[in-house]
C-alpha cells in the first residue's frame, strides 16, 4: 500500500482533508510534522493547503525553512513523489522545487468556487491515471493563485509539456491558464485546485479522485527505478 505523508505546518488547514482523501482511495496516510527533519520513509509527500506560518512575508516564504523541507527536497531528488496543493504549491515554488511564483489573483478577489480544469499531460505522478483532454471539476480556494514566471521558464514548461493542468476559464489571471505544473523529472507537481476536496459524490465532485489515484497507483514512483 502506498504510504503518503502529509506535511503539517503551523497554519496548514487542509491536511485532514488530504489524509481522509488518501485513505478513502485506499492509501495509507500519515502526518509529517514540519519541525522534523525527515519524511519518515513515505512513498509520496503531499504539501497541503492552508496558510503555513501565517503566510507571513509571502506565502511559503517561511515554510521553506522548516526542517522537513530539506527532507522533502531530498525525497524529490531521489525520485520520490511530492505534490503541493494550493498553499503547498506556493511552498514548493518558494523552496525552488518548482519554478515560477504565485501572485495575487487578477481582480484581487479571493476565489472560493469550483472550476473546470483540463488534463494537459498524463506524464506526471499526479496525472498518470487521468486522461489527456479530460475536463475535471475541482474546487479552488485561494487569493494568490495567479501563476507567473519568466518567458524562458514558460517556454520550457510549454516545450516539455510540464503544464499538467490548465483552467478552461481562467479565474485568476494565471499565465497560459496554468492550474498545475510539474518539474523536469515529473515527480514534483504543484497545483492550485484541491483534488482532495473532490473524491466523493457527497463533496459534489469525484473528479479529483483520478489525480490522487495516480499518486497511489504509481506508489509515488512515476517510473520503475533500476
Amino acid at each position: 500500500m502506498t504510504r503518503v505523508g502529509v506535511v503539517l505546518f503551523p497554519g496548514s488547514n487542509c491536511e485532514q482533508d488530504a489524509l481522509e482523501a488518501v485513505r478513502y482511495l485506499g492509501g495509507d496516510a500519515e502526518l509529517l510534522w514540519h519541525g522534523d527533519s525527515t519524511v519518515q520513509g513515505v512513498d509520496a509527500v503531499i504539501v497541503p493547503g492552508g496558510f503555513a506560518h501565517g503566510d507571513y512575508l509571502r506565502p511559503g516564504a517561511i515554510a521553506r525553512f522548516s526542517p522537513v523541507m530539506a527532507a522533502v527536497a531530498d525525497h524529490a531528488a531521489a525520485g520520490g513523489a511530492v505534490v503541493g496543493i494550493c498553499n503547498g504549491f506556493q511552498v514548493l515554488t518558494e523552496a525552488g522545487l518548482l519554478p515560477g511564483a504565485l501572485q495575487k489573483n487578477r481582480g484581487l478577489s479571493f476565489l472560493c468556487t469550483t472550476v473546470a480544469v483540463r488534463v494537459e499531460s498524463t506524464d506526471s505522478v499526479l496525472t498518470s491515471e487521468a486522461t489527456t483532454g479530460a475536463v475535471l471539476r475541482i474546487p479552488i480556494n485561494h487569493f494568490e493563485g495567479n501563476y507567473t514566471c519568466g518567458p524562458e521558464t514558460l517556454r520550457e514548461l510549454q516545450g516539455e509539456e510540464r503544464i499538467v493542468l490548465r483552467y478552461v476559464d481562467n479565474p485568476n489571471g494565471s499565465v497560459d491558464d496554468i492550474a498545475g505544473i510539474c518539474n523536469a523529472d515529473r515527480n514534483v507537481v504543484g497545483l492550485m485546485p484541491h483534488p482532495e476536496r473532490a473524491v466523493h459524490a457527497i463533496l459534489g465532485s469525484t473528479d479529483g479522485a483520478p489525480l490522487l489515484q495516480s499518486l497511489l497507483k504509481t506508489g509515488g514512483r512515476l517510473r520503475a527505478t533500476a
Partner: peptide, 9 residues
Amino acid sequence: GVADPQGQT
C-alpha cells in the same frame, strides 16, 4: 512588467 492587481485597484 509584473502585473500589480493591488496597484491597479
